[in-house]
């Protein structure tokens, strides 16, 4: 299968300048690859740096060292050294990030939030609306909420809007951070199914799943990042 992510010699540490310049090393010499159709689950104790690694893959945290080649439109792009507009283009077309938190924007309805990635990739408004409605229904979000801005929704409802937005048109690479944290069993199963479908369609998945049952159902491979830790 095509290699979608190639991580080479990545190290990360945080320097807290306003707290006495203390340096917090997270990990060093991280090397791995992820192919299309794989679901790599990051393992390791809380605080080992799983979320930091996921954010580095997304180009959100900047590693201290190393390169991360993302296969973008058939070509490798180093997300670490790429200019901002290239990173944004990679995110728009290739890299999706699914967190448990929705960034609420004033006045934008749940339906529009979910339609957005489809429109950004050139879908017609009709197709986008149809797919967005189907996805919200699948995640059991009551239809009376679709036209409302999610600012007043419960945590679980906001989370489902966020998941709907992420999976309505799965990216070639999906980075997933604890997507099922506050969901009930039925919706958890929907998320597991959505991940499996994205993978079957060729997406490369890298994820963090606290829930062991979910982890077992999703993973095709594990990566224990404690092994990279340099004390």
């Amino acid at each position: 299968m095509t290699t979608m992510i190639q991580v080479e010699n990545v190290a990360k540490s945080f320097t807290l300048h306003n707290q006495g310049g203390v340096n917090l090393p997270v990990f060093d010499e991280v090397n791995f690859e992820v192919a299309a159709g794989e679901a790599l689950v990051l393992a390791g104790a809380s605080g080992a740096g799983k979320s930091s690694l996921l954010r580095i893959l997304y180009g959100n945290y900047r590693p201290t060292r190393g390169s991360i080649r993302i296969t973008h439109a058939g070509r490798p792009v180093d997300i670490v050294s790429a200019v901002p507009r290239t990173v944004l283009d990679v995110r728009r077309r290739t890299l999706g990030f699914v967190s448990q938190f929705l960034r609420v924007i004033p006045r934008v309805s749940a339906l529009d939030i979910v339609r957005d990635p489809l429109l950004a990739r050139g879908a017609t408004p009709e197709t986008a609306t149809e797919k967005a409605r189907a996805m919200l229904a699948r995640l059991n979000l009551p239809e009376r909420l679709w036209s409302l801005a999610p600012a007043t929704f419960s945590g679980g409802e906001q989370q489902r809007v966020n998941i709907a937005r992420s999976f309505v048109d799965p990216s070639p690479i999906m980075l997933i951070d604890e997507p099922t944290a506050s969901l009930d069993a039925a919706n958890r199963d929907v998320v597991v199914a959505l991940i499996a479908e994205a993978r079957a369609a060729g997406s490369a998945i890298v994820g963090i799943f606290h829930d062991e049952a979910v982890r077992e159902k999703v993973a095709t491979r594990y990566l224990d990042i404690t092994a990279f830790r340099k004390a």
Binding site: R85, R92, D116, L119
Partner: peptide
């Protein structure tokens, strides 16, 4: 309404 710009191909 959508949430972010569509970026033209950088090339």
């Amino acid at each position: 309404m959508t949430l972010h710009a569509t970026f033209p191909d950088t090339a």
